[in-house]
Write a protein that binds this DNA or RNA. Structure first.
Lengths: 343, 343
DNA sequence: CTGAAAGCGCTAACAT
DNA sequence: ATGTTAGCGCTTTCAG
C-alpha cells in the first residue's frame, strides 16, 4: 500500500493525504482523522527512499570505520559510544548507517559507500595523528563531527573529545605528589591521536617538575591484557624498576595488576597504578582486588550523546560553523600511598 | 554532478551513461571508457536513494537493538559480532543500518524505523525466551536472520546460533569427570535465550548422572565482574560450598577468580572454574593467573560472518526458505584437577 | 549500439 | 481546505 493507493481508497489526492499524515496545518481535522485511520488500518508506511529523494533529507547519519580501526571497534568503549549516540539519534528519528571499509578504499568509500544521499551527516571515529580523512570529509561537504581530535590539522572542524592530555597530566601529577619518580606509561598505539595526547600529558607533567621520562618505561601497543602484563613484567625485571604505572585502559591495567601480583609486590604499598579508561581515571591501589568494572558513571556514554547532539545541530544549521566540546575526564582517587622506601 | 549533467557533458543520453557505468554489455568499449573517465573526472556518484527507488534494492541490512538489550550492546561480544558482519556485508557493497529502539516502540518501530525500502533484510540480535519480535518480522516480510534462537517459537525462521546447550553440557561433564559434584552456575539473565539454553545444558548434564542442581548454587543476573565476585563469595561462604564454578562470561569469570583468591582457596586444586565466553569454553584452573583475554580464535567473529552470509543468501533468493547454522563452541581444556578431598 | 520515455513513491510549489 | 503538476535521480522497457 503506497500513497497513491491510499489516496485512491480515500477518494483524496496524494497531496492531501501526504499533508494530513505529515501534520501540515492546512488540512481539516476531519480529513486528517479519516486519513490517519485509513493509514493505520492499511498499515501504510512511507517509503523512506522516495521521501528522502523528495525532501533531500536522509534521516540517517553515517559512521565509518576503517578496518585498521578494527582494534577500536572491538573496544567495549566503542560499543558504548555507538549505543548512546544511537539512542540520541533514534529519539530524533535518525538511523545510523555503519560502514566498515579497508584502509585502501578509504577515499573512494567516503564518497561512494556513503553515497550521495544516504546520510545527512557523519561521525568520524578513532582519528589518527595527522589523519587525512578530515580533508576528505571537508570536500564531501556533509556536516561531520569527529569523535576525538587530530593533532596538527589546520582546517577548522567540529569535534568532541575527552581531555586526554589533562587526564594524564592529572594522573601523573597525582603519582608525583605521592612521591613517585619512576613512573611507567603503558600506552595504546600512539598513532591514535588519543594515545598521542595521553603521552603528551604524561611528559608535560614530568617536565613541569623538571623530570624526564625514562624511555625504557614507556610502551605503546594495542591495549590488551597480555600486553599490559608482559610489558609491566619486563619493566619490573629491570635493574631500576618503576614504582608506579599509568595504564591506558582497563584491560592493560588488569595485565599490569597481574604482573605486579606475580612479582610478589604489594599493590598500593610498593607499587601504585593509575588506570584510565572510558574517560575515567582511578587508583585501584589500596584495595588491589577492588572491582575494576563497576564504574557507576561512564563519560563515554555522555560522549556519544553529545556527539550525536552536535551533529544534529550541524545538520539543522550547517552555518553554525565548527563547534567543539571538550569533555573533562573524571579522576577517582582511591586509597594510595607513596613508593616503597629506597632499599 | 548527477547522471543528467554527466550525460549532457558527454553528449550522450542518460541511458547510455547509466549502462556504461553499470557494466551492461550492449555498450561499445570506446563509449564505456569515455564515460568512465568522465565520471571519475567529475567525481560522479550515483544517488543511492534514486537508484534504490528505481531498482528496489536498498543495498543495506538492518540491525535493530532494543533499549532493553542495552546490556547486550555494551557487551564486547556484540561489537565483535557487528564488526565481522559489517566486514562481510561491506565486501558485497552492503551497509548496516542500526536502529536503537525502546521496548515500547518495538512493534511500531520494526515497521516504521526500518521504513519500507531502507533495508533489504534484517539481523535480529539478542533474542529473549518467548520473544515476540519474530512474529513481527515475519509480518514485515523482509528476509531476516536471528542471531540466537527463541525457545518455544513455533514458526520456522532462519537463525545462526552457538550451541550453548551443548557447550554447557560439555563443560559440566568435564567438571563431573574431574569428580566435582557441587558445581555452581553463575549465569547471565535467563530471560535471554542463550542463558536459558546454557542453564538447560548444565541441568541436563547433571541429570544424565542422576544429579540435581542445588538451587542455591545457581545465579542469574547481568554479567558483570562484581556480580561474579559477589555471587561466588556468597556461595563460598555457605556451609556446603561449591568445588567448581561455571561462569557465563569472561567478566563473570574474573569476578569468580577474585572471590576465590580472596577466600584463600587454591585455583585448580581446591576449586575449579570453567569460563565460557565468545563461544569458547576454557579452564583457567591450573594456572590461575593465565591471561583470560588472549583467545586466538574467536567464534563470535565467525558468527558475524556467517550471519551476514546467510542473510545475503536469503536476500538473493528468499525462497531458499528458513536456513539454520549451529556453531559448535570450542572447549579448551587446561590443566585441572578434581575437587579437594573431603575434609 | 544508442536514445526516448515511463515510472519508482514521495513532497512541494503553484493553483483554485 | 483540496487538487494539479512537476520534479527528486536513477533504471528499465521499448523503439530504432
Amino acid at each position: 500500500m503506497n500513497l497513491k493507493d491510499l489516496a485512491a481508497t480515500l477518494g483524496l489526492s496524494q497531496t492531501t493525504v501526504s499533508r494530513a499524515l505529515n501534520g501540515y496545518p492546512e488540512v481539516s481535522e476531519a480529513t486528517r482523522k479519516r486519513v490517519r485511520e485509513a493509514a493505520r488500518e492499511h498499515g501504510y508506511r512511507p517509503d523512506s527512499r522516495a521521501r528522502s529523494l523528495a525532501t533531500g533529507r536522509a534521516m540517517a547519519v553515517g559512521l565509518v570505520l576503517t578496518t585498521s580501526a578494527r582494534q577500536e571497534i572491538v573496544n567495549p568503549v566503542f560499543a558504548d559510544f555507538v549505543a548512546s549516540a544511537a539512542e540520541t539519534l533514534a529519539a530524533r528519528g535518525y538511523d545510523i548507517v555503519m560502514s566498515l571499509v579497508t584502509e585502501a578504499e578509504q577515499t573512494a568509500v567516503y564518497r561512494s559507500l556513503l553515497r550521495k544521499g544516504r546520510v545527512d551527516g557523519l561521525i568520524m571515529q578513532a582519528p589518527l595523528t595527522g589523519d587525512t580523512r578530515i580533508g576528505i570529509l571537508h570536500k564531501i561537504g556533509l556536516p561531520f563531527v569527529v569523535h576525538g581530535r587530530v593533532s596538527d590539522h589546520d582546517e577548522a572542524y567540529s569535534w568532541m573529545d575527552m581531555d586526554n592530555r589533562h587526564a594524564f597530566h592529572t594522573a601523573t601529577d597525582h603519582l608525583l605528589d605521592l612521591g613517585h619518580r619512576d613512573i611507567a606509561l603503558i600506552n595504546g598505539i600512539e598513532d591514535m591521536d588519543f594515545a598521542h595526547r595521553r603521552r603528551e600529558g604524561f611528559i608535560d607533567a614530568l617536565a613541569a617538575r623538571n623530570l624526564r621520562p625514562r624511555p625504557e618505561l614507556m610502551a605503546s601497543a594495542a591495549m590488551t591484557e597480555s600486553y599490559g602484563h608482559d610489558t609491566a613484567q619486563r619493566m619490573l625485571a629491570q635493574p631500576h624498576p618503576p614504582t608506579a604505572f599509568l595504564a591506558s585502559s582497563m584491560l592493560v591495567g588488569m595485565g599490569v595488576h597481574r604482573a605486579i601480583r606475580e612479582a610478589g609486590l604489594q599493590m598500593g604499598r610498593e607499587v601504585s597504578v593509575v588506570v584510565h579508561d572510558d574517560g575515567l581515571s582511578y587508583l585501584p591501589n589500596g584495595t588491589p582486588e577492588q572491582p575494576l568494572f563497576t564504574a557507576t558513571h561512564s563519560p563515554v556514554r555522555q560522549a556519544g550523546h553529545l556527539c550525536a547532539d552536535m551533529l544534529l545541530r550541524l545538520i539543522a544549521d550547517p552555518s553554525e560553523g565548527p563547534i567543539h566540546t571538550k569533555l573533562q575526564a573524571s579522576f577517582l582517587v582511591g586509597p594510595s600511598t607513596g613508593p616503597a622506601p629506597i632499599q
